[in-house]
Each structure stands twice: as C-alpha cells, then as structure tokens.
Amino acid sequence: MTRTSSTSTVVATARGWRVLGWLLCPVLGAALCWGLKLAAGWVTTLAWFPFQGPFRLVASIPEPAATFGALGLGAVAGLVLAFLGDLDLLSLDVGPDGVALTRAGETQRFDRGAVGAVFFDGGKLVLLGTRGDELARESTDLGKQRVRAAFEQHGYPWHADGDPYRENYRLWVEGTPELSDRANALLRARQEALAKDRGDEVKELRRELVKAGVFVREEKKRQYWRTAPG
C-alpha cells in the first residue's frame, strides 16, 4: 500500500495482505495440529520412531476432545504467529522534512538534511548520513519500486546501484587490529548470535557497533565491517 498526501508518502503492507495473514494462519495452524493428531496413532505403531511419549499421550485422548483440542490449539498458535508477523512489518512515512521508519510500535525519525544516501542492500533498506555513517538498516518485504518512488518523489538521494561505500567493507576476523577491543568483542558476540539465529541480539549488537562508529553487514553469516570515511 502506498498513500500520498500533500506532505508525505506512506508505504506499508497492503491491508488486504495483512487480513489474509490473520485469516490463513489460524486455519493452517488448526489443519496442521489436526493432521498431527491423526498421525499420532500411526506413529505409536512404529517402534523405531523417537519421542513416542507425546504421541502416545495424544493418541490416548478420547474423541471428540482430541479433535476439538487439536483444532483449538492450532488456531491459537496460528493467531500468535499472525500477530508476531504483523508486528514485525516495516512501514515508511517519507516527507520533504524527514522520514520515519516504524516497526513493532517503535519509530525511528531522521531529518531530511541528515540523510545522505538511501538504497537497498539485498532485502534491507539502508539510510546513510551525509558523512557516510549508517543511520538505519532494516529488513523489509515492501516493494522496492514503491519504496524507491517514495524517496525520489521527495528528493532523497536514492542510490540504485546500492551502497556507495560497499568497497570499504572488509571481512571481520578475530582480533582485527584496526578495531578497538570493544568493537572486536561486539563483533565476536554478534558472530555467535548470527550462528545461533538470535535475531534480536544481532540487531542490538549492531546498534552498539554503530555507537562505536563501526558499521556492519553480513553475507552467509560472515560479517563485513567499515567505519565512516575519514
């Protein structure tokens, strides 16, 4: 969804897709749990199959309680998944005076004069400051053409070729001498968080690195770093 007013352009996931998610997730969750309930009796006949205890427990629940319970549990799990997915969606409010990025009820605001470059790095929207410092790096499924059009409409410096400082990034290795002990420690912790898919920790450590003047991106769970030019 793209909505333009006299002062700004809002880019967000279309309401129809969000409603579809809220409808489909409970249905799919209920269907999955019902399928597992149906399979439980068969699994208990397979002596080689591990974790027999939970399947025997499910198979022992009398009907219709087993069916209603499976459907209800699956629907609730689907609703929780839909809520978390909806909460994680990114929306943009781009205007001539500044831009706001909102996710999970938290908003980052940047004045127009502070933004020196905007581009996509893979599936992430990146805003750089006028001195090459990184202001924001947010993953998003928003249509790239819609996002680009919103920024260009309000005169932001859109870089279609990607990061103008891409060649400045270097592969991080343990104990990189050009970095401080604190930066190396943060990168070490972030590498471990990446390996274990701890997304929230990865984001928090990136924010701490930005405070230390180090900007990081990853490819296939390998970290690349740079500092602001000069």
Rank of each mutant, 00 (worst) to 15 (best):
G72F: 04
L73V: 15
G74W: 11
G74F: 04
A75W: 01
V76I: 15
G78M: 05
G78I: 04
L79W: 10
G85D: 12
G85E: 15
G85T: 13
G85V: 02
D86H: 15
D86L: 08
L87R: 13
L87K: 12
L87N: 14
L87M: 02
L90R: 03
L90H: 03
S91P: 10
L92A: 06
L92D: 06
D93W: 01
D93V: 15
G95N: 01
P96N: 10
T102D: 02
T102L: 02
T102V: 06
R103A: 02
R103V: 11
A104F: 05
G105F: 00
G105D: 01
T107L: 08
T107S: 05
Q108K: 08
Q108P: 07
Q108S: 02
Q108I: 04
F110A: 04
D111T: 04
R112I: 06
G116T: 01
V118E: 00
G122H: 07
G122I: 06
V126R: 03
L127P: 05
L127G: 00
L128P: 08
L128W: 11
R131S: 02
G132V: 04
D133H: 00
E134C: 12
E134N: 09
L135M: 07
A136C: 08
T140L: 01
T140G: 06
L142N: 06
G143M: 07
G143E: 11
K144L: 08
R146E: 15
R146L: 10
R146F: 14
V147S: 05
R148D: 10
A149S: 07
A149T: 03
A150K: 06
F151E: 13
Q153Y: 00
Y156R: 08
P157D: 04
P157R: 08
W158A: 13
H159A: 09
A160H: 13
A160T: 08
D163H: 02
D163P: 01
Y165R: 10
R166G: 06
E167F: 03
R170M: 12
R170Q: 10
L171Y: 13
W172C: 08
V173D: 14
V173Q: 15
G175N: 10
G175Q: 06
G175C: 05
P177T: 09
E178A: 15
E178W: 05
E178H: 08
L179D: 08
S180R: 07
S180W: 11
